[in-house]
Design a protein around this nucleic acid. Structure first.
Lengths: 215, 215
DNA sequence: TTCCGCTTCAAACGGCCGTTTGAATTTCGG
DNA sequence: CCGAAATTCAAACGGCCGTTTGAAGCGGAA
């Protein structure tokens, strides 16, 4: 039995335990994935009892669901971009704005890197919890990317061409954000501070806009 | 104790068991990753005894090493591209050749999809076996991508710009190959036969060459 | 102070894990 | 066909897994 539907207000102690468990679970799941991350390790890092996971969250999956909720919340904060804002800009500026927004996690890496790793795990083998979680929310990054490329492509472009171009654009920032940890090490050694981020936006915008021949 | 250093020639039966185990291990590791894939499931699919893994390969890690050897071998076959061949082509044709070569797994998917999934697992959390395996072989795809972009970029381009552009190009085919299974499902529903592959090469080549503004 | 519900806790449960063991079986040169 | 080596096999080992259990600790209302 869990306490999920009890009426009492949460005591300080309760909230402390819950918070510590979610925080520890975030790092453990980021490190080892959902299947690979153990409740024992989580409760050990949170300095809590093993049974606390089942008591407060109903089980390992319930705890993971809380982590996913927090992860998407943090992401919406850091990478929020209004679709209509894109339409109000020139195509070139819409492109730059799109790239900048979705490359932002590069410099806020400490805060969102764990969430990025969790999403990376899910991209290899989606857990049931995750699948159910994102079932009814289409990835915003694709929607916005399509809006940007439509500003450039001719009206008679085939649906396939639009999809190709949309995916082509969408995965450009995704790659750098996802692989940031690897790119920070040799042989690349790319460290992304604010200036480097601007240079990356410039380079990607130039390449996407005019291609290799126009750099 | 294993039979790894015995002098006898492999019997038909030995080779049958080894082959069946490697094949089963490939599908299991592709599905669940190295940590998540169990020896019990592998030997069950191979219709072999659990102890056979330790007897023939010295353990789970030895079997995984064989899978990685086979995976890279299959990859070098399917995506081999001579660096000097790129230099002999015009920049435009070198770009097309590069994209075509590294998008090839899209249509040979049945043969290499399992290997792609294994590499995807390793990209999230490299196993010790994998790290040791690739320690002294730089990813060919990056080397070739740099060769291509250098044909286009001005001589005085900064090292950082070259790296950005190289990564930008390298991950374009990687994305489509890695995400092919997801792209085959709604809402994208992209099926890659030979014709679709050519159209994708065309689109990516045009976008990379002249950018969004030049399509 | 007594009581009662919330929370913590140590221990145990059943299950799957990779590996080891030692005997049974098969293979193959002599 | 015999005997030794190679291979297969069922069983067991110790360890980690998520979850359950029931008692103990705790805090606020009566």
């Amino acid at each position: 039995m869990s306490n999920l539907d009890q009426g009492r207000v949460a005591t300080r102690s309760t909230e402390t335990t819950r918070t510590a468990l979610i925080k520890a679970a975030t790092s453990v799941f980021a490190e080892y994935g959902y299947d690979g991350g153990s409740v024992r390790l989580i409760t050990q890092r949170a300095i809590a009892n093993q049974a606390a996971v089942n008591y407060h969250f109903g089980g390992k999956d319930g705890l993971y669901r809380e982590v996913l909720i927090e992860a998407t919340r943090a992401f919406e904060e850091n990478a929020f971009l209004d679709p209509e804002e894109l339409d109000s800009l020139s195509p070139e500026n819409a492109l730059r704005r799109y790239l900048h927004q979705f490359l932002l996690p590069l410099v806020k890496r400490d805060r969102v890197s764990r969430y990025l790793r969790i999403f990376a795990w899910e991209s290899v083998r989606p857990s049931e919890v995750f699948s159910a979680f994102v079932a009814h929310s289409p990835p915003r990054i694709f929607v916005l990317a399509e809006r940007v490329v439509r500003r450039f492509l001719p009206r008679d472009a085939s649906a396939e061409t639009v999809t190709f171009a949309m995916l082509w654009l969408a995965q450009q920032p995704m790659f750098f954000v996802r692989e940031a940890e690897r790119l920070a090490q040799p042989p690349f050694s790319l460290k992304f501070d604010d200036d480097a981020l601007e240079r990356l936006v410039d380079t990607l915008a130039a390449l996407s806009l005019r291609g290799l021949a126009g750099v």
